[in-house]
Design a protein around this nucleic acid. Structure first.
Lengths: 197, 197
DNA sequence: ACGAAATTCGAGTACTCGGTCTAATAATTA
DNA sequence: TAATTATTAGACCGAGTACTCGAATTTCGT
């Protein structure tokens, strides 16, 4: 009685997911065929569908993965003492991530798909809620130490910072003159003026 | 020798464009088939392709239309004396437009498609450049009258306001708690703090 | 080494895609 | 009216779609 090897199984899923991410960021969810993912992963369709029952579950897995990555970034930054600096640092990493067109492309694809498929929409909403909660925690913590305007509406401000994050990814798509590495100063100015009285 | 009636021709194009916009905002560019557009427009494929040679040209026409609409909004607001108020008024209309999910959906679809298809990317870049130019003109005008920080980098600030606009549309997709009509105050706060010293 | 389960393959399925073609009809002018 | 052109419908096309299936192969506990 042979059993499945969880490590090998997970590794194979990763291979598929990485191939799918590469394809999706190039051509979008609906623009890439399962055959293309198979080719990128050097795998037959029978094999691919052995690991994911439908193309949709592959997309869902990628959105879920996005969430874990965001949580991971916050975990690393959470140990900072200076909460305002932690927030600005997080935004710097966002700007850095946006510099990778594949990442921005995927972020936009997920947002667009969220409006069409309510299952993806629900996943994206969860990701966003967690992001906003983490941002709000930073802001209210900073407020209680007077690093930012102490009268600030933390959840409300977090919501708009989330909007700015989305906006950064859109910049890559529509503004060829937007160079993330040159925009750090203006971003900090925007954020600090918004948050600090 | 019969001639084409430009009015009828234009009206027929409008019918197709409106049908396509309805479909695209529901299912995305690649998610809707030309047959669906035909059904929505109550028209045969032969007829539809008589007016647009390819599906792509329909998409392109929609993006182009978006540009004209934006220009129109600015034209109406351009007559204001108070340039800061004009800017805030423009952002209010953006927030209002975002309240229509069909509009936000289309905006996201265009951004996502811009990353995949360079022809759409070029059109979207033009639209964005015009938007930024109009915003920058408002900002520098306001700066010269000391309505905003007179030392401001107007084009740089315009770029980030464009990012905020994109971010608003993304909010609709991923944040079910984002209610445009309740966010006007926070938006004004964000903008005025950013622009005014 | 055996046998069963896990994995892999790729041809094949029913169907949809964007787009074409033909042929009929409607509108215009000579 | 006759000739010409614009417009229309919808059957049709080859290519591609997500996904299935049965068989071949690999792997591992015994």
């Amino acid at each position: 009685m042979r059993k499945i090897d969880p490590e090998k199984h997970a590794a194979r899923r990763r291979l598929i997911l990485d191939a799918a991410i590469a394809c999706f960021s190039r051509k979008g969810f609906h623009g890439t065929s399962t055959a293309e993912i198979c080719a990128e992963a050097r795998m037959s369709p029978g094999n691919l569908f052995h690991y994911f029952p439908t193309k949709h579950t592959i997309i869902a897995a990628i959105v879920e993965e996005e969430r874990q990555e965001t949580a991971e970034i916050f975990r690393k930054l959470g140990e900072e003492k200076d909460l305002l600096a932690a927030l600005l640092g997080f935004m710097d990493t966002v700007l850095d991530l946006a510099g990778d067109p594949a990442y921005s492309s995927l972020a936009l694809e997920i947002a667009a798909e969220a409006m069409r498929d309510e299952r993806i929409g629900a996943l994206a909403a969860t990701n966003d809620a967690e992001l906003q909660a983490a941002l709000a925690a930073l802001i209210s913590g900073a407020a209680s130490r007077n690093q930012v305007d102490s009268a600030i509406d933390a959840p409300g401000a977090a919501r708009w910072i989330a909007a700015i994050i989305d906006g950064i990814f859109s910049r890559i798509a529509v503004d060829p003159g937007f160079s993330p590495k040159d925009e750090g100063a203006m971003m900090r100015r925007l954020l600090t003026r918004f948050l600090c009285s």
